[in-house]
């Protein structure tokens, strides 16, 4: 049955473990920030009305903040992974199993 990857990759174990660990760490960090947001909205919805700065309330600042934080964490993760890929010099080495 042919359902393996279309492209075989040769990434060393150390790199894979690093990426997985870094990804999981950042995932848990973001999940915690997101979880607190959902919890605040559910348990203390009136707290979200309090003005934080520039006339904007906590709901708006936290909500937009969640979007911005996702982008920043993504860029940070990519930076770390790319740095490690360069150090171990394995990324991009690949063997095509078939081509169009």
């Amino acid at each position: 049955m042919d359902h393996g990857p279309a492209v075989e990759y040769h990434e060393c174990e150390e790199l894979l473990k690093y990426k997985q660990k870094a990804g999981l760490r950042l995932f848990f960090v973001y999940s915690a920030i997101y979880g607190i947001f959902v919890l605040l909205n559910t348990v203390f919805p009136r707290m979200m009305e309090s003005v934080v700065f520039f006339g904007l309330n906590l709901a708006i600042v936290y909500g937009i903040g969640l979007i911005v934080v996702a982008i920043i964490l993504g860029l940070f993760y990519n930076h770390q992974c790319t740095k490690m890929e360069r150090r171990l010099d394995t990324s991009g080495s690949k063997t095509l199993r078939g081509s169009e």
Partner: peptide, 28 residues
């Protein structure tokens, strides 16, 4: 706007947990 926040947050799961392993393991 909560939908916007939730839809975007989901991408964090895709990036940190799913993207690369899924690419390595799948074909179509």
């Amino acid at each position: 706007f909560l939908y916007s926040i939730g839809y975007l947050a989901g991408w964090v799961v895709a990036l940190f947990v799913v993207a690369e392993p899924l690419k390595r393991m799948g074909k179509f």
